[in-house]
């Protein structure tokens, strides 16, 4: 008998049509179908979802928090991307 730990899955739930799937937590399961079943039982006991995604945690590629400052730096000095950067003349409307 094998005693290996079941793989970890991340669970994403769409709470209702029109909204995106959002990370809810994680579960362990032996295979994909059992992961869906376990995610349903664990995270939607009160009708919190209309759709579930499960994905093996090991398949997620994530940015490194230690590198976050450098990684997101290029966006920092481009404040002209925000509408508030522009001063509109007094009296002009619908802008």
């Amino acid at each position: 008998m094998t005693n290996k730990e079941w793989p970890l899955y991340e669970v994403f739930i769409r709470s209702k049509a029109g909204l995106s799937h959002k990370h809810a937590g994680s579960i362990h399961a032996a295979d994909d179908q059992l992961a869906l079943d376990a995610a349903r039982d664990t995270y939607t006991r009160r009708s919190e979802g209309v759709s579930i995604w499960v994905v093996r945690s090991s398949l997620i590629v994530a940015s490194d928090p230690a590198e976050a400052a450098a990684f997101f730096e290029p966006a920092k000095d481009k404040i002209y991307r925000h509408p508030t950067f522009y001063e509109m003349p007094e009296g002009v409307e619908n802008l």
């Binding site: 008998m1 094998t2 005693n3 290996k4 079941w6 032996a30 295979d31 059992l34």
Partner: peptide
Amino acid sequence: GAWVRAAAHAYAEKQ
């Protein structure tokens, strides 16, 4: 529950 865990594992392996 050990046999259940093992069976789920074996099934996943087989798939």
